[in-house]
Design a protein around this nucleic acid. Structure first.
Length: 637
RNA sequence: GCUGGUGUAGCACAGUCGGUAGUGCAGCUGAUUCGUAAUCAGCAGGUCGUGCGUUCGAGUCGCAUCACCAGCUCCA
């Protein structure tokens, strides 16, 4: 007999060799029906795995990560089986479960068409109906290679398995695949399936390898869950910043202007100005100086900085000026360094904190451009800190705290921090610098009571860094903030300061961007609020809606008053019914609407309707003015 | 850059077998004077992304090219 400890801590005894499924059945029929896999001492296993020793058992349903993954992994096998049936010549690569669903990569001469996907989906439904049992078996290395002799990718995978690895296969009907598992007991357990899209993907994610054809799909135990999922996708599309940007008239792109180059419309520019004004004000409060630098620079500069050596493919090509090469700047740092080097610095000057909303241009590959989130011309909220070694830890803490303050000010409370350490091979600077800098970064994070994931070897060749990815309302991560050491440029540009003992010393240089780029940050912000900006950021903060023509004058007086308080206000004097006007305000996501009629005119009030809460009654004009001014001042959400 | 898809009025879309382009919203004009998510009527708006080709004839078929979309690689 063996003793099984269940999730709730209870213990049960079973005969040795009892399968996980049987154990589930002994607990309840319902659980056995819902169970997809079992977690045995932390390892996810097939339901029909026999248990031979005392263990901790957790039964996994579709609600759990492991259960979902098992379910999707099996669906990917069903898809591969369908593809093999329909296209016998395809070679199989890999087919894992992913965060939302699964994919399988195939090597096939002719890429799949959307019609192919439909046919494959139909074939999958047949396989599900056939309810084929899924069996696991183990082979020796030779046997495995023999079985997979026509599958070159599988052979590559087998050959790379460690010496002592168990080489397992899963078989369902006429289909067998090399696979570590786990899987569902039979194909019939998969219910609602949808193949989402087809795409090219390089073998092993390396662009020098052959491009394979990947099919993405998703599946659920219930048709209603699939519908729900598709509906959620639709909701996400509704708050897509590209769509909102167009609907709300915030920004656009123009084919003639060029790809990845943003045109900020007046309303978008208003929001941007609020962001930038706040940014400037806070930087000054935090001991920064603001600088401005040119958009282009001589080739020599970029040679010294190393950009032409390391970064040339990402730069716009040179322009010829009087026979000399000039380049649009991909980064601001060489200019800030040039300011530093314009005179001799004493240790008494340090730390120097120079910030710039610097617009840079980078030649991004055409396929990677994405709305505002990936563009070719963007404005970094850049700054460079120059400090003496003993000032460095305090500077890091200071900048980290400032960074989190900025993110919080814009309503982002969920973020993830990544610390990237020294690369194994290519790096500049000596070990002790790397160590001191990396420790300072880590200690700053800990000192702020935060946690970070360590990306071992993920630092740039020129220094370690902290990246902060903010999570938007849909829980997607976007990298915005970054704090990076630079051991490269101070050397190349020979930065020095005069130390107390009169010797020349090399300062530490830290690059940092808090919002990242204004474009990306704006895009994320737009999606985060689904276009409904809090009052302080809204491009139109209030719209006045007179009911009749006779109220226009009073409406304009109120508008004038609000404008004097720096409030963006509009008056809708069109000859339309009030319901029509209100509907439009709601769609324009303006936070306040002020309905003005005879009543309000007589009593000197406004009838306030909020975007969020609807009609909130009437109040004296001055009361509304102080209310909205206060909300703007406090960044109320 | 790579794989696939898309491109028709300001926006969202329809356009069959190749026969010279339509709907809704927005816009403009007029009527309506109205209290919390769409008042009615009329008008105007298009070299069908661009170029070349096939054809008596191309939005529709072919090739090229540009842009966008999804994914891969890369990245703030």
């Amino acid at each position: 007999m063996i003793e099984i400890t269940l999730k709730d801590g209870s213990k049960k005894s079973f005969e040795k060799g009892t399968t996980i499924l049987d154990i589930a059945k002994s607990i309840s029929e319902g659980l056995a029906r819902a169970a997809l896999a079992g977690e045995v001492d932390g390892e996810v296993k097939d339901l029909n795995t026999p248990i031979n020793k005392d263990c901790q058992l957790n039964l996994l349903t579709f609600d759990s990560e492991g259960g979902k993954h098992t379910y999707w992994h099996t669906t990917s096998h069903i898809m591969a089986q369908a593809v093999k049936r329909l296209f016998p010549n395809v070679k199989l690569a890999i087919g894992p479960a992913i965060e939302n669903g699964f994919y399988y990569d195939f090597d096939i001469d002719k890429p799949f068409t959307p019609d192919d996907l439909k046919v494959i989906e139909e074939e999958m439904k047949k396989i599900i109906k056939e309810n084929l049992p899924i069996e696991r078996f183990i082979l020796s290395r030779e046997e495995a290679l023999k079985l997979m002799k026509d599958e070159p990718y599988k052979i590559e995978l087998i050959n790379e398995l460690p010496e002592d690895a168990e080489i397992s296969f899963y078989k369902q009907g006429d289909f067998t695949d090399l696979c570590a598992g786990p899987h569902l007991p039979s194909t019939g357990m998969v219910k609602a399936v949808k193949l989402v899209q087809q795409a090219g993907a390089y073998w092993r994610g390396n662009e020098n390898n052959k491009m394979l054809q990947r099919i993405y799909g998703i599946s659920f135990p219930k048709a209603s869950q699939l519908e729900e999922y598709l509906k959620m996708i639709e909701e996400a599309e509704k708050r897509d910043h590209r769509r909102l940007g167009k609907e709300l008239g915030l920004f656009s792109f123009d084919e003639e202007v060029g790809p990845g180059l943003v045109l900020w419309h007046p309303k978008g520019a208003r929001v941007r100005m609020r962001i930038e004004d706040f940014w400037r004000q806070e930087h000054i409060k935090n001991g920064y100086d603001i600088v401005y630098t040119p958009h282009i620079g001589r080739g020599k500069l970029w040679e010294t900085s190393g950009h032409l050596g390391f970064y040339k493919e990402s730069m716009y090509s040179a322009m010829d000026v009087d026979g000399q090469d000039f380049y649009a700047k991909p980064m601001n740092c060489p200019f800030h360094i040039a300011i530093y080097n314009s005179r001799l610095h004493s240790y008494r000057d340090l730390p120097l904190r120079w910030a710039e909303l610097g617009t840079v241009y980078r030649y991004e590959k055409s396929g990677v451009l994405h709305g505002l989130l990936r563009v070719r011309g963007f404005t970094q909220d850049d700054a460079h800190l120059f400090c003496a070694p003993d000032q460095m830890p305090a500077e890091i803490r200071r900048v980290l705290r400032f960074c989190l303050y900025m993110l919080n000010s814009f309503g982002f409370e969920n973020y993830k921090i990544y610390l990237s350490t020294k690369p194994k091979e290519k790096y500049v600077g000596d070990e002790s610098m790397w160590e001191a800098a990396t420790n300072a970064l880590k200690e700053a994070v800990l000192a702020e009571g935060l946690e970070c994931d360590i990306d071992e070897g993920g630092g740039a060749f020129y220094g370690p860094k902290i990246d902060i990815k903010i999570k938007d309302a849909l829980n997607r991560e976007w990298q915005c903030s970054t704090i990076q050491f630079d051991f490269n440029e101070p050397e190349r540009f020979d930065l020095t300061y005069v130390a107390p003992d009169g010797t020349r010393q090399r300062p530490y240089m830290i690059h940092r961007a808090l919002l990242g780029s204004i474009e990306r940050f704006f895009g994320v912000l737009l999606e985060h609020y689904a276009g409904a900006f809090p009052v302080w950021l809204a491009p139109v903060q209030a719209r006045i809606l007179p009911i009749l023509e006779s109220h226009h004058e009073y409406a304009n007086q109120i508008a004038e008053k609000l404008r004097l308080h720096d409030v963006y206000v509009e008056v809708d004097t069109r000859n339309e019914k009030i319901g029509y006007k209100i509907r439009e305000v709601q769609m324009d996501k303006v936070p306040y609407m002020l309905v003005i009629g005879d009543k309000e005119m007589e009593s000197g009030t406004v009838s306030v309707r909020s975007r969020k809460d609807g009609d909130i009654g009437s109040m004296p004009v001055d009361e509304f003015v102080s209310r909205i001014v206060e909300e703007i001042k406090t960044h109320a959400r």
